[in-house]
Design a protein around this nucleic acid. Structure first.
Length: 689
DNA sequence: TTTAGGG
DNA sequence: CCCTAAA
C-alpha cells in the first residue's frame, strides 16, 4: 500500500538511493585525496623556487628601515631559536597571529621591541613591520614575487594534513637554516597580505587554479588597507580597529580557516564556525595578557607535521582553536592599547591649581568634544569660592578606567609615552560624559539638587564619585541602559564643588556609535583580561579608591556584554532560489536523513552552509510550503519548488515511516492480531503516508 | 561528527 | 540560526 501511495506522489523518478550507507569511516575516505596530490608539486616547487628570492627581498625590505635593521638582526636570532623550538608550529597559525599582531603594532606604533620574554610578540611585530615595508615598497619584481609567495602560502594551511608528512622536510630542504626559514615564513605571510592590492589578477587566477577555491585570504583587503592607514593617526586606527573587529571580519576569518581546512586530505572539513561557537560559549575568554602565554600557545598548540593519527588532528584542531583564540587575544590586546588603553598609573590629573592650564593645553590636543571634562574642571575650580552651604569637592584626578597596556620590555620610554598619549588622546577625543555616583548608586536625576540627592557637605563625601563614561553616542542598550549619567554641558559648571573627592571610573568605552560593535568586544575582553589577571593585579592598574561600588556595577554590565557576545550569530545568509533549488534537488535524491550527503552533493563548495543549515533550511522550506503564500516572507520561493519540497517531504517521511514499520514488522505482526497499541502505531504510520 | 529536533 | 542530546 505504501508503495502505491508513493506512486501517487509521483516519485517514480526518484532514484531510491536509500541504500544503506557505508560506514562513516569509509565514506570519509571517499572524499579524501582530492586536492592534495595535484597541488603538492606546485606548491613545493613554488616554495623552493622562491625561497631564495624571498629571502633577499625580505632582507632588503626589512633593512630599508633603519630602526628596524637592528631589530631584524636581533629578532632573527630570537626567531631562529623559536622556530627550532616550535618546529611544529602551524604556519597558518602564524599568519593569523601576524594579522593580529600587526594591529597592535600599527596601533601603538612601537618603534623597538626586543625582549626574550616577548619573543613571540616581538617577532610578530617585526613581521608586521616587514609587512608594512613590503606593502610600501612592493614594486616591480617584488610585486610578482610576492604574489607567488601568496600562492605558496595558500598551499600551506590547507595542506597541513595532506602535506604535512613532507612539510618539515620541505622546509628543511629549502631553508638551510632557521633564519632563512623564518624569513621565508615571513615572506609568505607578507606576500599574502600584499597580494590583495598588488597582485595581478592572473595570479589570483593561478591561485584559484591551484586550489579548489579562492585561496587568497579574504582578509587581505582589509589588511592591505590597513597598511595604508597612517600609523600615527589614532582615529584612523580606531577605524581600523573597528573594522578588524567587525562581524564581517570575523566571519571572513572563519571562512579563511575553513577554506584552509578544505584542503585537508583525510578528514572532513573542520567546522570552524562551530569552534568559534564553542569559543563563544566558553565562559570567559582566556584573554590572559601575559605574553608568555603566547609561548605557551606555541608549545602546546603546535602541530606535528609528521603526525597523521587522529591525535594529530586533535592537535590541529586545538591549534586552530587556539589560533582563533589567539587571534582574539591579540586583537583584544591591540584594541585595548589602541582604544581605551592608557596606563593606570598615569592618571589624568587635574589638580585645582592647574585646571586652567590643563584645560588650555587639553583643548589643543583634545577635540572639542572633550569639553565636558573641561567644564567639569572649570566648575571645580570655581569651587574654591565655596560658601558654607556648598559641597566642597576636590577632584584630584580623573583616572582612566580599566587601563591595561602592554608593551615589550624593550620598548623605549618614548614609545611608551607615545602609546599612552595616543590612548589618552583617543580616549579624551571622544565624547565623554560624567556620571555621578553617590553611596554606590548612580545619581540619575539630573534635575535634582545635590541636597535632594543627599549630597551635602555634611555627608561623607567619600561616598561621592564621578565616572567617566562614553558620551551621548548611541549607548549600548543593554549595557548602559541603566547608566544614567550627568552630562555636563559646556560651560554649565556644576555646583561649586570643593573638598576631597574620590573618583572611580567605570569602563570608559569608546566614543563612536559606529564603533559599538567592536566596543563590546573590547570592553568584554578587557574585563576578561582583568578578570583573568587576578583582581589584585588589575587593581594596581586601576586603583579604585574608597568606593568600589563602581566595580560592582561594572560586573553585571560586563556580563551583559559577554552575553551579547555569546549571542553573536553568524551573519544571516538567506538561501537564494538557486540554492533552494539545489537543496530540493539533493533532498529529492538523497532523502531527508542524510544531510551530510546533501551538503556534499549540493553545497560542498558553500563553506557557509553546514549540513545543519541545510537541514534547517529544509525544515523551513517544508513549513513555508505549508503556509499560505501571504504568510511567507523573504525572497519568494517559486511555488514549483515548494511543491517539490512538499512532494519530497511527503515521500521521504513516508519512506522513513515505511522503514520504521519494516523494522518493527516482526514485532508488529506478532502483536497486530491483538489489535492494541501496536496496531494503532501501524495505523498512524500509514496515515502519515 | 552527524542526525534530529527544540528554541 | 543556535544549541545539544543521542547516536
Amino acid at each position: 500500500m505504501g508503495f502505491e501511495k508513493r506512486l501517487d506522489y509521483g516519485f517514480n523518478a526518484f532514484s531510491v538511493s536509500n541504500v544503506p550507507r557505508a560506514p562513516r569511516s569509509i565514506r570519509r575516505r571517499d572524499r579524501t585525496k582530492r586536492t592534495v596530490d595535484d597541488n603538492q608539486f606546485c606548491a613545493f616547487e613554488l616554495l623552493a623556487s622562491l625561497a631564495g628570492k624571498l629571502l633577499e627581498e625580505s632582507e632588503s625590505s626589512a633593512a630599508s628601515n633603519v630602526s628596524e635593521g637592528n631589530d631584524h638582526v636581533y629578532i632573527g636570532k630570537d626567531v631562529v631559536k623559536q622556530e627550532i623550538e616550535y618546529d611544529d608550529k602551524p604556519l597558518k597559525s602564524e599568519c593569523v597571529e601576524h594579522v593580529s599582531c600587526k594591529e597592535s603594532v600599527v596601533a601603538s606604533d612601537w618603534t623597538t621591541e626586543n625582549s626574550d620574554s616577548l619573543k613571540e610578540f616581538k617577532h610578530s611585530e617585526n613581521n608586521a613591520k616587514m609587512q608594512s615595508a613590503y606593502s610600501q615598497q612592493t614594486k616591480g619584481d617584488l610585486k610578482s614575487a610576492i604574489c607567488k609567495h601568496n600562492v605558496a602560502y595558500g598551499s600551506f594551511p590547507g595542506d597541513l594534513d595532506g602535506f604535512s608528512p613532507n612539510f618539515g622536510e620541505l622546509c628543511d630542504g629549502i631553508c638551510d637554516n632557521g633564519v632563512k626559514r623564518e624569513r621565508e615564513a615571513k615572506g609568505l605571510e607578507s606576500g599574502s597580505f600584499v597580494v590583495a592590492n598588488n597582485c595581478p589578477l592572473k595570479d589570483q587566477l593561478h591561485l584559484s587554479m591551484t586550489f579548489p577555491a579562492s585561496v587568497n585570504s579574504v582578509r587581505d583587503v582589509k589588511l592591505a588597507s590597513r597598511s595604508d592607514s597612517v600609523p600615527n593617526a589614532s582615529f584612523s586606527r580606531h577605524r581600523n580597529n573597528v573594522k578588524l573587529g567587525s562581524r564581517d571580519d570575523e566571519e571572513k576569518f572563519s571562512r579563511f580557516n575553513k577554506l584552509s581546512n578544505r584542503f585537508k586530505a583525510s578528514r572532513p572539513p573542520i567546522r570552524i564556525e562551530d569552534q568559534r561557537r564553542k569559543l563563544l560559549t566558553s565562559k570567559y575568554w582566556k584573554a590572559a595578557p601575559k605574553l608568555k602565554d603566547f609561548e605557551h600557545f606555541r608549545a602546546d598548540g603546535g602541530i606535528k607535521p609528521l603526525l597523521r593519527k587522529r591525535k594529530a588532528y586533535y592537535n590541529y584542531d586545538k591549534c586552530q582553536h587556539d589560533t582563533l583564540y589567539k587571534r582574539r587575544k591579540l586583537f583584544d590586546h591591540s584594541s585595548i592599547v589602541t582604544y581605551d588603553g592608557g596606563i593606570g598609573s598615569g592618571s589624568v590629573s587635574n589638580s585645582p591649581e592647574k585646571v586652567k592650564n590643563e584645560n588650555k593645553s587639553s583643548s589643543v590636543t583634545m577635540s572639542h568634544e572633550a569639553c565636558e571634562i573641561s567644564s567639569l574642571l572649570k566648575g571645580h575650580q570655581a569651587s574654591h569660592k565655596s560658601s558654607d552651604s556648598h559641597v566642597k569637592l576636590s577632584i584630584k584626578s580623573f583616572r582612566i578606567p580599566e587601563l591595561y597596556i602592554e608593551v615589550p620590555e624593550s620598548a623605549t620610554v618614548g614609545s611608551l609615552k607615545r602609546t599612552v598619549m595616543e590612548a589618552v588622546t583617543a580616549l579624551l577625543g571622544g565624547r565623554i560624559r560624567v556620571g555621578v555616583l553617590f553611596q554606590g548608586k548612580k545619581v540619575r536625576d539630573d534635575s535634582r539638587t545635590l541636597s535632594q540627592s543627599g549630597i551635602s557637605s555634611d555627608n561623607n563625601l567619600d561616598a561621592l564619585g564621578f565616572t567617566l563614561e562614553p558620551g551621548p553616542a548611541i549607548a549600548p542598550p543593554p549595557l548602559y541602559s541603566e547608566e544614567h549619567t550627568l552630562l555636563l554641558p559646556c560651560g554649565a559648571a556644576p555646583q561649586n564643588l570643593t573638598s576631597s573627592l574620590t573618583t572611580v571610573n567605570p569602563p570608559l568605552l569608546t566614543n563612536s556609535a559606529k564603533a559599538m560593535d567592536s566596543t563590546y568586544k573590547q570592553t568584554s575582553s578587557q574585563t576578561d583580561i582583568l578578570t583573568d589577571q587576578k583582581i589584585s593585579e588589575s587593581r594596581a592598574l586601576v586603583p579604585a579608591p574608597a568606593m568600589n561600588v563602581e566595580a560592582l556595577s561594572v560586573v553585571p554590565a560586563n556580563q551583559k556584554i559577554r552575553k551579547s557576545e555569546l549571542a553573536r550569530r553568524r551573519t544571516r545568509r538567506p538561501f537564494s532560489v538557486s540554492e533552494v533549488e539545489a537543496l530540493v534537488q539533493a533532498v529529492e535524491e538523497l532523502g531527508t536523513g542524510r544531510w551530510r550527503d546533501v551538503k556534499l552533493r549540493a553545497f560542498e563548495n558553500a563553506d557557509h552552509r553546514t549540513y545543519v543549515d541545510l537541514k534547517d533550511k529544509w525544515k523551513t522550506l517544508v513549513h513555508t510550503a505549508k503556509i499560505s503564500p501571504q504568510q511567507r516572507r523573504g525572497e519568494p520561493v517559486p511555488q514549483k519548488l515548494l511543491d517539490r519540497v512538499m512532494t519530497a517531504h511527503a515521500y521521504w517521511s513516508q519512506h522513513q515511516a515505511k522503514q520504521q514499520v519494516k523494522h518493527h514488522t516482526g514485532t508488529l505482526r506478532i502483536t497486530d492480531s491483538q489489535g492494541d497499541r501496536n496496531g494503532v502505531a501501524v495505523a498512524i504510520s500509514t496515515v502519515s503516508m
